[in-house]
Design a protein around this nucleic acid. Structure first.
Lengths: 111, 111
DNA sequence: AAGATATGACCCATTCATAGATCACATTCG
DNA sequence: CGAATGTGATCTATGAATGGGTCATATCTT
């Protein structure tokens, strides 16, 4: 049972941004949708839907396309993703491993 | 004919980063995986896979979770995504609408 | 200008991600 | 310590996303 996902407006905007970035990067490299699809490992149709901002495409496909096109994810150069990942993992190591509903005593402080 | 896609290492790292960010944000808010799933509109299992960095999850689901948790996408506050989207669209409006292979493979004439 | 081709929009058969349940385990709280 | 519950893993049925094709249109090149 997969669910047709209705996404919120901010999410739709974010999808549109990524879609536009991918399309711009692809055009700037003079790459056809079919060629990008081949490099990413999906068909041309998936690239089209990705550049249309459809929410159902696999996130792995989207990120792979971004990496191939040289689009920096998380505002970090592709070759530094590993370092950022280590940082994020270190943060999670400090956080509790389970969230208890009863323990809501802590007001959510961002960051 | 779907293809179980093997993603490249940088893509896998990016997936891990997003997964870690989502998990950290969820924990910091004392939210259970089931609750986040309900808010996003998916089941608890999908949240698990998302936080495990699996590439097959729908990108709409991932972005929706990020938005709900207040994670800034593209280093922009959620309420400013619309502005960034307009910028990206403006850029695409200036770029060619189609990519031709011929235009690429002909930088040299003769000699 | 004409020719060439990339794109967008469909369609359909196939396949995999998802929902939902259950189980074992570990962690948190009383 | 013991009880409670969140998490992770696994299983099955189902429906949605994908692959691959076709078609019409737009737009780029020569």
């Amino acid at each position: 049972m997969r669910k047709a996902q209705p996404v919120s407006p901010p999410t739709q905007e974010a999808l549109g941004i990524l879609a536009a970035m991918i399309r711009a990067a692809r055009m700037q490299r003079g790459m056809t949708a079919a060629e990008l699809g081949t490099r990413v490992g999906v068909s041309r149709g998936v690239i089209q839907r990705l550049e249309a901002g459809e929410p159902g495409t696999a996130i792995g496909t989207a990120f792979e396309a971004a990496v191939i096109l040289g689009i920096p994810l998380f505002d970090v150069p592709t070759d530094q993703l590993g370092t950022l990942l280590d940082q994020k993992r270190a943060l999670n190591a400090l956080l509790p491993k389970r969230a208890f509903q009863a323990s809501q005593s802590k007001p959510d402080n961002d960051f």
